[in-house]
Design a protein around this nucleic acid. Sequence first.
DNA 1: CATGAATGAGGTTTCATTCAT
DNA 2: GATGAATGAAACCTCATTCAT
Lengths: 201, 201, 201, 201
Amino acid sequence: MEERDRRAEILQAAQKVFSQYGYHQATIRAIVDEANCAAGTFYLYFASKEDCFLALMDKLYRNIMEQILEARRQVMKPAEKLRQSFWAVVEGLSHDTELTSVVLVRAAGANPMFEERLWRVRDAFAEFIVEDLVESGLTLSRASIGAHACVGALAETVGVWVRSSESESALMTAFEEIEHIFWLGWGLSQTEGVESKSYGN
Amino acid sequence: MEERDRRAEILQAAQKVFSQYGYHQATIRAIVDEANCAAGTFYLYFASKEDCFLALMDKLYRNIMEQILEARRQVMKPAEKLRQSFWAVVEGLSHDTELTSVVLVRAAGANPMFEERLWRVRDAFAEFIVEDLVESGLTLSRASIGAHACVGALAETVGVWVRSSESESALMTAFEEIEHIFWLGWGLSQTEGVESKSYGN
Amino acid sequence: MEERDRRAEILQAAQKVFSQYGYHQATIRAIVDEANCAAGTFYLYFASKEDCFLALMDKLYRNIMEQILEARRQVMKPAEKLRQSFWAVVEGLSHDTELTSVVLVRAAGANPMFEERLWRVRDAFAEFIVEDLVESGLTLSRASIGAHACVGALAETVGVWVRSSESESALMTAFEEIEHIFWLGWGLSQTEGVESKSYGN
Amino acid sequence: MEERDRRAEILQAAQKVFSQYGYHQATIRAIVDEANCAAGTFYLYFASKEDCFLALMDKLYRNIMEQILEARRQVMKPAEKLRQSFWAVVEGLSHDTELTSVVLVRAAGANPMFEERLWRVRDAFAEFIVEDLVESGLTLSRASIGAHACVGALAETVGVWVRSSESESALMTAFEEIEHIFWLGWGLSQTEGVESKSYGN
DNA sequence: CATGAATGAGGTTTCATTCAT
DNA sequence: GATGAATGAAACCTCATTCAT
């Protein structure tokens, strides 16, 4: 006898529908049709449409957090930690690109609450990178700007990729290029951490 | 007797209301209250709420386009052209940050149509940068990835800044840091264009 | 050009529908059909179904209050004041028996808020009678019990009458009988106020 | 092993919940939670929510009927029979005031069917009093009006008492006062039945 | 007997849009 | 050009009831 996880089924369906129509255009009707259940069933597992969307945001958040914490468990050198964090975020974002694009691009305009929660997510990721950058010798201010810029670059890249019909490897190539840009931009050699020579003011 | 531009008044009011509530929470009622006119009047100038929002997106688009085209009129060296384009985008984005945040962060989830238009806007800006980067010696692929990453970084930076209560000069500092990162990342000296030493494949 | 009072029209329709179906069975749809307007129009004049019902309660309340205050304006002797109050309540209740029965019998179970408001109405009327009874020599305790009993008797009588298909004069006869019972019961002669002889404990 | 009467348990729980929330606000969920059983179990004992409420109405009806029939079994003099009926009703009403208030005040607005049943209950009680009053010499018309007025007075009194936080003895005092009023009002000596002196037409 | 997950009809309410004035 | 009362479609959500276990 198979164990069905209704909540997961509905969440999956919701993700698909939100991805297709955006938050407001998505109707409960469409979600439950996709999930093959009745409207009332939706409300056994989620208090509201909003609650369901927030559950998706949390899912992405936890996905990435897991990756980051896992990655940072055994590392030692700052430069390496930074790279691990970066790729953990990348890993989390690319693990389920539909989810990523739903949360990153469909969340904002829909609801001020989503927007705030979304910023919390983005800020949390940036925070890890900031920390590593500071350890690597950048000032807090530059680390903070750079970390957010990096998160923005990653998010945009996912967005571009989702619209395109390119392969997953194309996405990976893009991530590598971004790593390349930021590591050079931050004055870090890609394998050895902070460069000795400083640059200008 | 002064000429009133009703359309501009309403657009201004709409920008304020969209900025405050997001697209869907914003009601025509709130917009016309803000504009001190009747609901019907709104429809003399805009075909629909959607049309009005699109007008705002176009406004931002034209703001930045103007800056870019203006900036690129007299320049010659590729390196300089790139820097001009970058700062033109920055200029356009920071000229009216309320408008920028409305379009950049409130648009997406609201409506698939906005999303598509928004990507057209972002792509258009990225395109100029791509062109300049290619002229500066990057491959098309890397130029394209880098240009989009750059646009994403700028958009995120505006988003972070809008939420914070920092001064405009803080925003400028952030833009400078981003320029710094990308120029180094792209292997361009900040004052002279493409660096001679290449990096890896 | 005729002045239409939409609010009054809808209120009238609502009264009819509530009277026919009770609060919960009554649908906005039925009300607006009865009022010959669209569902949305209802919400131009009432914040909610609840608000509309409360408006009906207030209408009855004001109807009766008006009668009472009017009646008590010029009177002097306590006995006469009491009789005037009694008949003012009666007048208010019988002025629009549909309204009366809607408010008095349909209000309770529907909504705790209605119930509370309904008691406020009943208490308010009882209060006038209490006051007059005390002036006529009864103790506060007995006056209070008697006044509420009297209100209950009147309400029940209206209820009975509404269900029956008797004439309005039958209702009046009933009210007179009730006056008769209570006046004797309170030890007041029907024309001269407090009786001299007291009765037991 | 004690015999549990599930039906009675659920009915008890229902009474409590209806009393607290009113008929429509009360949910089956709340009732079965209170009764510590599953939703499905409710439907083993009651055909519907409506059916359950009707069972409560019947319970009150039977409570009072029992009292009345018991009381009237051995009496002979009309005056005494009337008093016995009156106090039997009072007894029935005050035996379980929660039940009384549920039925008397929460029933009406909920459902036209309840209302009709409620009137049947009230009419049944009034009928006994009418009968006794006619035997005591009143005309049928006056007896009928008086009996209903009396029932209304009693019901209102219970309602007032339930809202207040007075002792049970206060309720009894109120009932005595009401007896006093009506007996005088009907021209009956409180101990001896119909007074010799008649009053008016 | 008992359970409780699933159902789905149906109601209230919102709000973009229209049009007679 | 300007108004704002009226429209009505359509969405979210509740909750009494069922039935497979």
